[in-house]
């Protein structure tokens, strides 16, 4: 962690992709979600009936589409990094905006899901499952928005052509954040929606 903080490119095979400070942030975020997941596992193991009853009320269609949207966003931002590496500026910027658009799709569907739960009278105090469901998915939801802001900001910055072969740290940093949001969702999807 000594020299790579000022790293401006990661063409060297053993370098951190993007900014080291962002990676510390990502690791810290993973830790927050990790603790949250383990708390969920602990609570569920102690009260499986409540969790199973709550999970039975969750539809699987929307979250599956949402998973596909986030994964496509990850693919798109990863492709954007490679496009910048080849100096295909226009393609790369469009891919970044595609990621933001896919994130927007996630946000819209997720809002619909939240609205449904609220309309059904579900609150944080309904039971332990719904407490975890609302807390986890809303906390992740905020991260999707932050991810969109970061990727969008990089897309705006990219207009002056600052991300070029060898000058990719900024866009790699944004991509890494998005992938973290995706990674967390993949576990969340399996745990909250599928494993019932």
């Amino acid at each position: 962690m000594n020299q790579s903080v000022t790293l401006s490119a990661s063409t060297n095979p053993r370098e951190v992709p993007g900014d080291l400070a962002m990676w510390f942030f990502i690791l810290a975020e993973l830790l927050v979600f990790g603790v949250f997941f383990l708390a969920y596992g602990y609570a569920r193991a102690h009260d499986p009936a409540t969790f199973a009853a709550g999970q039975r009320q969750l539809a699987l269609g929307v979250p599956t589409v949402n998973t596909l949207l986030l994964i496509a966003g990850s693919a798109s931002v990863a492709a954007a990094v490679r496009a910048f590496a080849l100096d295909r500026q226009r393609t790369a910027r469009r891919l970044l905006w595609l990621t933001v658009a896919l994130g927007m799709g996630f946000v819209v569907l997720k809002c619909g899901e939240f609205a449904g739960k609220l309309a059904a009278g579900i609150t944080l105090s309904s039971d332990t499952f719904w407490m975890f469901y609302l807390s986890l998915t809303f906390f992740h939801f905020l991260h999707v928005i932050l991810g969109m802001v970061i990727v969008g900001a990089v897309a705006v910055y990219a207009r002056d052509g600052r991300y070029r072969p060898g000058q990719l740290a900024g866009v790699e940093t944004a991509a890494a954040y998005w992938h973290m949001v995706d990674l967390v969702w993949v576990v969340l999807f399996a745990l909250v929606y599928v494993a019932r």
Partner: peptide, 15 residues
């Protein structure tokens, strides 16, 4: 206070 604070408080302050 509502019981969810026990989870929220524990999880976030553990960080």
């Amino acid at each position: 206070t509502p019981g969810y604070w026990q989870w929220w408080g524990s999880i976030f302050s553990a960080i």
